[in-house]
Design a protein around this nucleic acid. Structure first.
Lengths: 142, 142
DNA sequence: AATAAAAACAGTATTTATTATTGTTTTTGG
DNA sequence: CCAAAAACAATAATAAATACTGTTTTTATT
């Protein structure tokens, strides 16, 4: 049968995500974890990320920016994505049961869950007048 | 300057999407449009889809299934994605201003808009007991 | 209608994110 | 300690989307 074996790489990946509030991508995990495990393979990162996600130890989130992100908070919650720098943040509120109830009322199928994405400018980008430009090159995040 | 020139391919793409309620992907547009334009290039489809999206003639939506989809309804509205067959449908309700107001209250940045995705089983998949299996091979959609 | 510059095209190559394969190393129950 | 199973590193492969190149269409101006 399917016995899960220990791996220090997986532990390290889990630990890394747990210490992050910025919803890192697989590539960010890879780049960072390489400091401790210079030989780790990108495939290993991907495999362990899906494994952790299916074990319910991290949450995989799609923000519509073409990359999957990973969140140590496994509870269902809303997210925000900044149109300035592309950063992803949590929205600290409970998912609305009302919203789901309303949707259920008007939809001819069964609704089991929902997510929401909010768009706008993060606090940093609000201050600096250089939006639609700086930061939009992505890449900078580590 | 940037003068937009007519193209029958673009018209055809716009028309195709306008006649659809199933939020087709670029590839679905490509496959279908090839009946009328057998020589059309996939690049042309992608280029015109982004063009139409930035002109506000169609809406580009990311449902977290790894493909961009296109919607003739350019108004902001919620979507549903079926965990059985992967189909995407509209949720016929107004986006909640309350939800956005609540999020604004608890978030330290500016919120300009939001979207929501609902998950569950569509009417078809509800009936047929063959969920977590049939249909989940995707591909079938045309 | 003729024409020429700009835009759009088809065809193809490339990039990016992710998954699959393969042969080696690690883990762990007996 | 040992062997089966799982995980690994390295690499190849796939899928979605974008970029490039040389040709065809559109259209404003004659």
């Amino acid at each position: 049968m399917k016995t899960l074996k220990y791996s220090r790489q997986r532990e390290s990946i889990k630990e890394f995500i747990a210490g992050r509030r910025d919803h890192p991508t697989a590539d960010m995990v890879y780049t960072n974890i390489r400091r401790s495990y210079p030989n780790i393979s990108l495939g290993t990162v991907y495999r362990n990320l899906s494994l952790l996600a299916s074990l319910g130890e991290v949450q995989k989130i799609s923000c519509g920016d073409g990359v999957e992100r990973f969140d140590p908070n496994t509870e269902s919650h809303y997210h925000f994505i900044c149109r300035g720098c592309g950063c992803v943040q949590d929205i600290p509120m409970m998912p609305s049961g009302d919203l789901e109830a309303m949707a259920t009322k008007v939809f001819e199928g069964s609704i089991e869950s929902h997510t929401a994405m909010f768009y706008g400018l993060c606090r940093n980008c609000q201050g600096s007048g250089l939006v639609g430009n700086a930061g939009s090159d992505k890449k900078a995040e580590t």
